[in-house]
C-alpha cells in the first residue's frame, strides 16, 4: 500500500465523519425526544394544526425567517431574557413538531419565540402586518397589504374590519384581513415557549 490509500479513503471519510458527528449522532440523541404531559393531561409542545399550521405556511412562504429568529439564548449569553423575549432558554424539545424548525439566524426584527406572550392582541398583530409603522414607528419591516382587502364603507363595514388608531384610517374604506392574514396571526399567537421544561432548572 502507498499514500494513495490514505488520500482516497481520506477524501471520502472526512465528510462521512462530519456527517456522523453533526447529523447522525444528534439524531440518535435528540430524535427520540417526547412531549411533556402535565398532571391535568395537557401536552407540551403540541403539533401545529388548523389555522396555526396554515399560518406557519404563510410565515414560511413570505420569508419571515430572514429577519426574525425563534430561539431564546441562555441566561448570561446575550440579553434575550432581560429583553423580555422569554423566561427561559429554548431547548430541542420545544421544536420536536417543527419541520423545518424556524430557528432563524438574523434579528433585523425581534425574536418571536414568545411573541404570543408579549403581544396577545389580535388587532395589534393585524395592524402591524398591514403597516408596521402604525404600531412600531421607525420599524423597517415590510408592510403586507396584500394579505388584506379594502371594502368601500358605503357597501358595508364588515365585522372583522381593522380598527385603526386616529390618523391611520383609510378614508372611504374599511380594511379586512384575508384568511391568510388571520392564519398568520393565529400562528404568531401560538408562539409561546414559556412552559417549564426539565432541561432548564427554574
Amino acid at each position: 500500500m502507498n499514500r494513495a490509500v490514505f488520500l482516497y479513503v481520506g477524501v471520502l471519510l472526512t465528510v462521512l465523519l462530519s456527517f456522523t458527528g453533526l447529523v447522525s449522532i444528534p439524531e440518535k440523541q435528540l430524535g427520540g425526544l417526547q412531549p411533556l404531559v402535565d398532571a391535568d393531561g395537557t401536552q407540551y409542545p403540541v403539533p401545529p394544526t388548523g389555522m396555526v399550521a396554515e399560518g406557519r405556511g404563510v410565515y414560511i412562504a413570505d420569508g419571515c425567517i430572514y429577519c426574525h429568529s425563534q430561539q431564546v439564548r441562555p441566561e448570561g449569553f446575550g440579553d434575550d431574557i432581560e429583553r423580555g423575549w422569554g423566561t427561559r432558554r429554548t431547548v430541542a424539545r420545544d421544536h420536536i413538531y417543527d419541520s423545518p424548525p424556524l430557528l432563524g439566524t438574523m434579528r433585523t426584527g425581534p425574536d418571536l419565540a414568545n411573541i404570543a406572550v408579549r403581544q396577545p392582541s389580535e388587532n395589534w398583530h393585524l395592524l402591524h402586518l398591514y403597516n408596521p409603522r402604525i404600531t412600531s414607528p421607525g420599524s423597517n419591516m415590510p408592510a403586507f397589504p396584500f394579505l388584506f382587502r379594502k371594502v368601500p364603507v358605503e357597501v358595508q363595514v364588515p365585522h372583522d374590519a381593522l380598527s385603526f388608531p386616529p390618523g391611520w384610517e383609510v378614508p372611504g374604506y374599511s380594511v379586512v384581513p384575508s384568511r391568510r392574514a388571520k392564519a398568520l396571526v393565529a400562528y404568531l399567537k401560538s408562539l409561546d415557549h414559556s412552559h417549564p421544561v426539565p432541561e432548564v432548572p427554574q
Partner: peptide, 11 residues
C-alpha cells in the same frame, strides 16, 4: 426531525 434539521441545515 426538529432541531436535527437545523443542525443538518448548517452542516
Amino acid at each position: 426531525r426538529g432541531v436535527v434539521q437545523a443542525a443538518t441545515n448548517w452542516w
